[in-house]
Design a protein around this nucleic acid. Structure first.
Length: 254
DNA sequence: GCGACAG
DNA sequence: ATCTTGTCGC
């Protein structure tokens, strides 16, 4: 059993990690959020990235997770895993991890290749309690995780330029005030993420630090992983795979 | 009290 | 997230 598989087993087996009540879940987030660490990410040193995603039926009857490892240089799939299970926690905005991480962890435990970085479809620190699913996963396993979301949950920002690669900062807070230069220069502006245009003229993605990476490196990595489409390749592959897997399991069950 | 609300 | 036809554009 790999080192990561062992960590996964310990994390899944600890009841403390899986509250069944939203109130307890929020309390748990506040505790774990203190363990989030920002560390430099040397993008040039990254070889393998694992994209993660989850798919589920509207009626909550099934839920599948996929982990797909890609070579950053060639963007070719090195290994992929998909598993299926049932939801154990409801969908509540801000409490994603408690619903999606159990199956994601199961998939990660089945991987035989060890990626350098993990990429989640969701937020890291750009979250009301600075503890989105990417941070949640990162802290549970103490591994480097980057968050890449498709819409905003929390924070304010202005709109980046239309060219691929342009970006604007996401700042903590809920007011209508956008973080223009004076606002950022102002003391106390807390940058929690980055709005990144990965494709010219197309809606941007929202990048944030999950755990043990930094925002600059995370954004650079996401941009490299999105040479053609809005969503970074590892997540696109994982999205497609878990969707197919869920349908296949559904068909098999009848 | 009211509006917002990742996937 | 999922359910889905047609449609606009490179």
């Amino acid at each position: 059993m790999s080192e990561i598989a062992e960590r996964v087993a310990r994390v899944l087996d600890d009841p403390e990690n899986w509250p069944d009540d939203p109130k307890e879940a929020v309390a748990r987030q506040r505790v774990l959020a203190d363990r989030v660490r920002v560390e430099p990410l040397d993008v040039d040193a990254v070889r393998l990235v694992a994209g993660l995603d989850v798919s589920y039926a509207t009626d909550n009857s099934a839920l599948s997770a996929a982990a797909v490892i890609l070579d950053v240089q060639t963007l070719e799939v090195v290994e992929s895993v998909a598993i299926s299970s049932e939801p154990t926690f409801p969908y509540i905005s801000g409490l994603f991890g408690f619903r999606e991480l159990p199956p994601v962890l199961e998939a990660l435990g089945a991987l035989r290749t060890t990626p350098d970085v993990y990429l989640c479809d969701g937020f890291g620190m750009a979250h009301p309690r600075r503890f989105g699913v990417a941070s949640h996963l990162g802290v549970l396993l103490d591994l480097p995780v980057v968050g890449s979301a498709k819409s905003v949950l929390y924070g304010k920002h202005s709109v980046p330029g239309n060219e691929r690669g342009s970006w604007t900062p996401m700042v903590a807070g809920r007011s209508e005030v956008v973080p223009d230069s004076p606002a950022l220069a102002r003391e106390g502006a807390e940058v929690i993420g980055r709005v990144l245009r990965t494709r010219a003229g197309v809606k941007p993605v929202y990048v944030s630090v999950g755990h043990r990476v930094d925002l600059e490196g995370s954004a650079e990595l996401v941009l490299r992983l999105s040479p053609k489409y809005r969503v970074p390749e590892p997540v696109r592959h994982a999205d497609r795979l878990c969707g197919e897997h869920r349908k296949a399991v559904l068909a098999a069950k009848g």
